[in-house]
């Protein structure tokens, strides 16, 4: 296959970036998108140019490291697929492909296609956990959890934290990312205990970090490689309302 790539090149976070065009030939349709970029980089190095920096690790769609916007869509046009699992057979021979980094204020570009996702970490650190320490916990089967509850919690827990939802959101909101954790933990009996604290703290951190507001576009769900739905945002909205009212009456400590 032959391709024309337009790749975002940016030296570092302080410099201006721009799209640079590269022609690439001899790509196997069975290659993954990242393998195609590997080949581009090999060619660039051999030509004495700087290779394109991009994040990637597991290359099997689970670590959440890869983060490219392909022709305007985070992770590309295939549904529920990360870039590393996107294969070149889904592109046309001779096609022009534009590759950009996630774009949002809280996730600034570090270099080329790599962004700094520390802000997503901060949201998790604000409340994405159950406050128990190692040891001293009850038997795993001590609390039965209805299968449907466990299943929905698992749907939410499938989030890989890539940040495609932020990249896709027209407002650069991290609501889907945040709601996945809130929804998982607030549903389960283990996490319910501190559900009010959690949702208040996480939303507060989300807002402080400069993410945009959710206005119910649904773009996030459309690009989420793990198919996380807006239901979890609805759950967050519910829980936040309850928590806020309790908070107003001094009920959340």
């Amino acid at each position: 296959m032959k391709l024309t790539l337009k790749v975002w090149r940016q030296k570092n976070s302080n410099s201006e970036g721009k799209l640079v065009a590269y022609d690439l030939d001899g790509i196997s349709p069975d290659s993954s998108f990242l393998e195609m970029l590997d080949i581009l980089n090999e060619t660039l190095i051999e030509r004495g140019e700087e290779p394109v920096a991009f994040d990637h690790d597991c290359r099997e769609g689970i670590c959440g490291m890869c983060s490219l916007v392909i022709n305007g869509i985070p992770h590309g046009h295939e549904r529920q697929t990360t870039v590393c699992q996107l294969h070149m057979r889904h592109f046309k021979d001779g096609q022009t492909v534009t590759i950009e980094p996630w774009r949002s204020k809280p996730l600034p570009v570090i270099k080329d296609l790599i962004v700094d996702r520390t802000a997503l970490e901060k949201i998790q650190q604000a409340g994405g956990f159950v406050s128990i320490s190692t040891g001293g916990v009850p038997d795993a089967n001590a609390t039965p959890i209805p299968k449907q509850v466990a299943d929905v919690a698992m749907d939410a827990a499938a989030c890989i934290g890539c940040g495609a939802c932020v990249a896709a959101c027209k407002n650069a909101s991290a609501m889907l990312f945040m709601s996945a954790k809130v929804s998982q933990l607030n549903r389960l009996p283990q996490g319910k205990v501190e559900k009010d604290r959690r949702v208040l703290a996480m939303v507060k951190t989300h807002d402080e970090l400069g993410f945009g507001n959710c206005t119910n576009f649904g773009e996030c769900q459309a690009v989420c490689p793990k198919g996380i739905t807006l239901d979890h945002i609805a759950k967050l909205n519910r829980d936040y309302a309850v928590a806020s009212f309790k908070n107003i009456f001094g009920g959340v400590k």
Partner: peptide, 13 residues
């Protein structure tokens, strides 16, 4: 929250 726009923007849904 998005100071720099996508050069090629697309909308899925």
């Amino acid at each position: 929250a998005r100071p720099e726009a996508y050069r090629k923007d697309a909308t899925v849904r």
